[in-house]
Design a protein around this nucleic acid. Sequence first.
RNA 1: GCCCCCAUCGUCUAGUGGCCUAGGACAUCACCCUUUCAAGGUGGAGAUCGCGGGUUCGAAUCCCGCUGGGGGCACCA
Length: 496
Amino acid sequence: MRVRFAPSPTGSLHIGGVRTALFNWLCARHYGGQFILRIEDTDEKRFVPGAADDISISLRWVGIDWDEGPDVGGPYGPYVQSERFELGIYRPFVEQLLEAGLAYMSFTTEEELAQMRAAAEAAGIKSFRFRGPERDWPLAQQQEMAASGKPFTVRLKTPLEGETRFRDLIRGGDEIVVQNDQLQDIVLIKSSGMPVYHFAHLVDDHLMKITHVMRGEEWVPSTPYHVLLYDYFGWQRPIFAHLPAILRHDGKGKLSKRKDDVATHRFRERGYLPETMLNYLALQGWSYDGVTEIMSRDELIERFTLDRIQPSPARWNPEKLRDMNGIYIRKRTAVEVAELVLPFMQRAGLIGDPASDAERAYLLRLIPLIHERLEELQEAPDLLRFFYRDVTPGETYNPADLIPKKHDAAQTIAMLRAAHEALSRQADWTPPALEVTLRGLCEQLAVKPGPLFGAIRIAVTGRSVAPPLFDTLAGVGRERSLARIKAAIAALEQMA
RNA sequence: GCCCCCAUCGUCUAGUGGCCUAGGACAUCACCCUUUCAAGGUGGAGAUCGCGGGUUCGAAUCCCGCUGGGGGCACCA
């Protein structure tokens, strides 16, 4: 089995593209075959410099590697279409078709074509199918016209009647059947001489001995042209497997570059783990047994089979992705999470770049407090901010929030004063020791832990939601904790 | 408009003629744990399997029609 992923470098790699690459890669690894990366840059107008690198980087990030490709080479190179074009690889195949009368030079310009379409529409013609007049010219006449310097494209000569049928591994029942009168003479070679996708990918797939073409379902409608071409050349058709689309979260259309945040590097930037992406993406159109969802790279390779790919579209589910990322973050060790979180802390300006040993040590100490609360790594700076920055009543938080439910300012002041006094005498500033002290204080004051701990939590962290109190106090440190409680008391007194 | 594809809880999905009074996950709700939030545990609600016809002793599973959704109709891929 030889499969490939053939993206075009028109921008950063779409997450749906990674899914397509993943399914191909998983097949190659599961069934034992080669996975090839080929860059299809035949669109000079939409080419984006650096996009090819983004594709490689994104694929490698999730753990997809290739046996043949632009940077690693291989027996059927080069693996970039513009380079293949320079080498004249497509030329003889165009000639072959032209000479066999299965394609023709078309001198109709884009402008003329646009006019014809507009005229057809105005005339109420339901659907316009273009076939150039030159399709019936002898080749010599076409060549003569071309020799006169008139620009031309090469078009596929599609049959006017009959039907074209092909099989798809995951959809269409037995066969997908298209009436040939629904086709039109598509462009194979642009007037610039550059081949178009339909032609280039097919020649390359043949030359590279691709056995299975796995691509997005948006290609189903153009597959008739492809099988026609295979038949015209007398080449064996590959096995087609059109992957289900990934729909937007609201179900309104496909996931799109313009409307959705789908660039692969964006997920990395938000703090998604590569193993999360690999696992989640594998489940976009494929399932193992309907019960098992969390699977490692190796398990995915072992379990992935073609017959379990869905024909119906998947829908992008950010909540599920988040949940899964939380699961994978929890699977990592504190040391790993600290390493993962570090760049986010640096970007937030909470830790220097480069980080000092002390900063690294402090971060590692704090990680256990947020580890199981983290779903996206980018949330870390916010969760840890009060360990690094001052907490000031009136600025960081509203002093009125210090007052627990069913309590008043005076009671809160009394509680915080007692807490401050008790903690002032506290020499052993470790979580267990702090717990003994503060629980003792609850009994002494005859209050429940909720209100007391809540007030201290807000005083020290500036927020009502934070990691467990004793660990938090230990993490913030004795002096800063006491100062923050004192400031809270002062703020409350000022209110009264 | 024309052509193609698809159709099970809100969402993803299991299910390939009888094991289905339809299973799992996310989300949601309640309870337990508990100093808040999470995590974890338990439980609940949630799908007459889009609708209508067939085939069959028997259909979510097979066939047809309809409806709905998606995709494609470029010198873009």
